[in-house]
Design a protein around this nucleic acid. Structure first.
Length: 306
DNA sequence: TAGCCGTGGTA
DNA sequence: TTACCAAGGCT
């Protein structure tokens, strides 16, 4: 959950998740929809699918106990070098380096590393430094401390160098380079996409959703059917219903992803007969939808419906 | 290798 | 309003 997500954001999700799935075995035994519903809104949904998959592997191959060998950990889906290092170090199993965003920022400043963080050359250099700094004793305290240093004092903006416990040996502090590190890379402008969400609703307030494939954006989640244009909405709906009562355009929603912006036009379609569903479709009440994994804008739109 | 993969907070 | 970025991993 903590991968690329701030602690403060994770906490409520973590609490609910642990309550629903208190053990590896219970997680492994849960349905995909159950797992995704507890991840709904947190983003990066491949993490949830990977965690679910890993729990099944741990039950099947490791008798329900999380493996303690580094090679076995990184072989699990969703666990890479840094996460495996965090697990082993913070659990006091063995000293392993981690290299998350916080540690990268601390190391680039402390050692004045100016390369592009996206390049493997720079990352290899940082991994070497992370290994070199790792103490043999008290390594779990060190690992937590360097992350917390990056999260609280050696922050991206508004750094608090005056109270930093390691400012004495920090090269960036000495040379007044703190605000220039880590190196800022020029980012391309995000492309924009437009989409129409078809919100089909019958007279019993059942809503049509479709399950997305386990890849790409919102993978494995339930969402509204989408069309790229509004030219064939009625034609599309005729596959589902022969008795459309009303079509109404809603307020546009702008939803930003990490690499593109999405402009969503919701279209509410009231139908009077029974929906004819395709195999990846489902018709649900609002209560049923609360037990499914849905993207954030879908959740917002559902809540707005009467 | 570089692009993909969400959402919320901050300035 | 816009841009940045967070306990990264996968392909």
């Amino acid at each position: 959950m903590l991968q690329q997500t701030q602690v403060i954001t994770v906490i409520p999700y973590f609490k609910k998740f642990i309550k629903a799935f208190p053990s590896v075995t219970s997680l492994a035994g849960a349905s995909e929809d159950q797992v995704m519903s507890h991840w709904s809104g947190l983003g990066f949904y491949a993490r949830a699918r990977n965690l679910h998959q890993s729990s099944k592997i741990i039950v099947d191959q490791y008798k329900g106990e999380i493996p303690k060998k580094f090679e076995e950990l990184i072989a699990l889906p969703g666990i890479g070098t840094s996460t495996a290092g965090a697990i082993l170090s913070l659990s006091c199993i063995e000293p392993r380096p981690i290299l998350d965003g916080n540690v990268k920022r601390v190391l680039t400043r402390f050692f004045n590393i100016s390369g592009d963080l996206k390049l493997s050359k720079t990352n290899n250099k940082l991994w070497s430094l992370a290994i070199a700094c790792l103490p043999e004793k008290d390594y779990s305290f060190y690992t937590q401390a360097i992350m917390d240093l990056g999260a609280t004092i050696c922050t991206s903006k508004k750094t608090q160098c005056s109270i930093c416990p390691v400012k004495k040996n920090c090269i960036a502090f000495e040379k007044n380079l703190v605000s220039l590190l880590p190196n800022k890379t020029i980012k391309k402008k995000k492309p924009k996409q437009t989409v129409f969400f078809l919100i089909l609703k019958d007279q019993d307030n059942n809503i049509l959703l479709e399950k997305r494939e386990n890849k790409g954006i919102w993978g494995g989640l339930w969402s509204f059917p989408e069309l790229g244009t509004n030219k064939h909405i009625e034609q599309w709906c005729n596959k589902i219903s022969q008795d459309i009562e009303n079509i109404e355009y809603g307020k546009i929603i702008n939803h930003g992803f990490s690499h593109f912006d999405l402009e969503i036009t919701p279209v509410v379609i009231d139908i009077k007969d029974t929906m004819s569903l395709e195999d990846h479709h489902g018709r649900f009440t609002k209560k049923q939808i609360s037990k499914l994994g849905v993207p954030k804008p879908v959740k917002s739109l559902i809540n707005q419906l009467k």
